[in-house]
Amino acid sequence: MTQTTETPMVELKGVKKRFGDLEVLKGIDLSVDRGKIISIIGPSGSGKSTLLRSVNNLEVIDEGTILLDGVQVNRPDLKGLAYEKHINHIRQNMGMVFQHFNLFPHLSTLDNVTLAPRKLKGMKASDARALGMELLERVGLADKAQVYPSALSGGQKQRVAIARALAMRPKVMLFDEATSALDPELVEEVNLVMKGLAEEHMTMLIVTHEMTFARDVSDWAMFMDGGVVVEANTPEHLFSHPDQERTQHFLRKHLGAQA
């Protein structure tokens, strides 16, 4: 993978996850360097979303280790309050963006963005406001600061969700099919925001169905199926001349004439 002597920003070693009898992650290794962008593609049920959620500890893995900037995320040795404290701290360094946005409907757009810095970092209201406005500006929604989420389009909601995730100044951003629930004409505005982050060298893990976007934006691409990484390579290589037959088959279905 991408070679450097620095500590990787995100590192997974032999990650396994089971839901009942079903093993959805069968030993995943991955190393993401600072400022790099990794796309994870694959059919539904391949385990790609579970993998991303495991990084955020929304799914607790059964085996293996996950490291964020050298600090272990999953801590089976910690119990109760100690574990809570640890995981809350870790999560403050990661931004997560969900398929269904999950904006807080009872809070204005601005409050959605500033809630975490205010309550978790104890940021002053005026500072939080300035930060919130700056982030909303960045996703092009400063004019919607006082609006409630119910008045926003899907694309706008997702842009606010990205701003909310950025408000804690995360070290890494996790995108879980961020554009899958959007109408086709709204996908581009969200992609543009993500591209902007890429230009600023934000470390990103992107689970997506958007093959063209994945090819354009990422430094490394991974194809997952049945809980294993079938193939990982540069996007140029993976999307144009995949080595594995399963990858070829999947891409033929999803890229169609583009492939």
Binding site: L58, I90, R91, Q92, N102, F104
Partner: peptide, 11 residues
């Protein structure tokens, strides 16, 4: 999803 979104922010 609301619970998860809040937890993912570190609450």
């Amino acid at each position: 999803g609301q619970y998860e979104a809040s937890r993912s922010l570190g609450f």
